[in-house]
Amino acid sequence: MRRRAFLVAGLAASMSAGRADAAVGERRAAADALFDRFCAETGLADASTIVMRGEKVLHQRYAGRYTPQTLVPIASSSKWMFGALVMTLVDDGLLALEAPIGTYLPELPASHRALRVDALMSYTAGLVGLREALELQQPAGIPLLESALRAARTPLAAPPGAQFDYGGANFQFVGAAAERVSGRTWHELFQARIAGPLGMTSTAWGRLRAAPDPRAPVANPVLQAGAWTTLPDYAAFLTMIAQDGLHRGRRILSARAVAAMGTIMTRGLPKVGPEGLGAQPAEYMIAHWCERPEGLRCTLESSPGYFGANPWIDRTTRLHGVLLVQDQRRRIVDAETRLRDGLIDLFA
């Protein structure tokens, strides 16, 4: 009798596991269909995407020439990684979000010394935005401090805190401060505090369109848009953020730092830009977007880039994912949004 009970229980468990495996297979097939539809709608032969919950991969696809080793320029998707690196210095007490940048860079002119670090990181400090492309026109070989000093020659476009003006040279100021308080270059900081601990073996910072050479890192990387990465690398970074600073049991950022990055900084402010990103997300936080603000919380965070890359975190479903492509985002933004939202609905 007992043996029969065991056999029945085992058969039931086997059938249940079979149904679960079938459901997983169906979801993956549906996710593949969504990805294939995105590629067909956009005409893109080369693309990759991943969807995760925690550290579990739910869906991953590579199309065309894209492989796990493919290095892709991610433009403004760099911003989220920039913000996280700066927040490691905040965690260590080397920088403070509420501090004036002149605390760390007294060489700046008086007009810029009082600008707060968090305002610079949220494009609310009053600096002229992306339309001037200040740091994009600078030499690659000058130090970050010189980059900031040159950018400070351009007068403020608005009083600090009066408007959101996307994509200025703001991050060069904070990057220069990061180098000063740590005594290390931006590249050394990123490797020691983000890339190394997360196992990001391929990500590097450079200029917007020229692939970085790790053997000869540029002194003046474009911190708002100059990172190049692979799908596994960015997925590791985003998993850490989605898990409030933890990755494979190792703490990279404090939960408080991740929460501070998720503070909406632009509520009620006039907004200028962003040019080239298609539909503008709702609000900006510390170095990334809030697409779905709900009260004081943000339930959908993202950092879309001009070339089409789009990392995102859906806090409601606890899903996160990355799309890597190389195109113009304003051309593919509708199809990209349908893909992401479809994947969220599928795996919710």
Rank of each mutant, 00 (worst) to 15 (best):
V222W: 11
G226Y: 10
T203C: 04
V218C: 07
V181N: 08
P160I: 07
E188V: 05
H187D: 15
A259L: 07
S182Y: 12
G249W: 06
D213S: 09
V258D: 09
R207Q: 12
M261S: 14
R150N: 02
G262L: 05
A236L: 02
L208H: 04
R184P: 03
R215N: 14
A242M: 08
E179N: 11
A178I: 10
H187E: 09
R251A: 15
V272W: 01
H187T: 11
P155N: 06
S254W: 10
R153C: 07
A260L: 14
L136I: 02
N170S: 14
T239H: 03
Q138E: 09
T229Y: 01
M261F: 12
A242H: 07
N170P: 04
R180G: 05
S182Q: 11
P155E: 05
A257N: 09
R184H: 14
A133P: 00
S147I: 00
A151T: 05
A260F: 01
L144F: 01
P155W: 05
L208G: 00
A260W: 08
L156F: 07
P232H: 00
Q191F: 03
L130A: 13
A162I: 08
D244P: 00
W186F: 06
Q172D: 10
L238C: 01
A255T: 10
K271W: 03
L145M: 03
A195H: 13
R267I: 02
L149D: 02
D233Y: 05
G175K: 03
K271M: 05
A227C: 10
A148K: 02
A192V: 05
A227F: 02
P270I: 06
I252N: 10
F164A: 01
N220A: 08
L145G: 05
G206W: 06
A176Q: 04
L223V: 14
A216W: 14
P221H: 10
G168D: 06
P143Y: 00
P155K: 07
R184E: 14
W228I: 03
L231R: 00
G183S: 08
P139G: 00
G196C: 10
L136F: 12
M265E: 15
G262S: 15
F171P: 00
A195I: 05
S254L: 11
L198M: 07
Q163V: 13
A133D: 12
G249P: 07
L198W: 09
A211Q: 14
M265D: 04
W228L: 03
V218L: 11
H187P: 01
S254A: 15
R184G: 03
W186C: 02
T230S: 01
P270D: 11
F171T: 03
L136N: 04
D213H: 06
F190S: 13
V222D: 12
A140K: 11
Q138H: 04
L134T: 12
G262E: 15
R215D: 15
I264S: 10
T266V: 04
R207G: 13
N220R: 01
P159A: 15
I252S: 12
G167Y: 12
A225Y: 12
G183A: 08
H187C: 03
L145I: 03
P160Y: 05
Y166F: 14
I194S: 14
Y234A: 00
M200W: 10
A177G: 05
A151S: 15
R131Q: 14
Q191K: 11
W205E: 08
T201S: 09
W186Q: 02
L130H: 13
P212Y: 05
G167L: 13
A236N: 11
R251G: 07
L198R: 06
W205Y: 13
L253I: 08
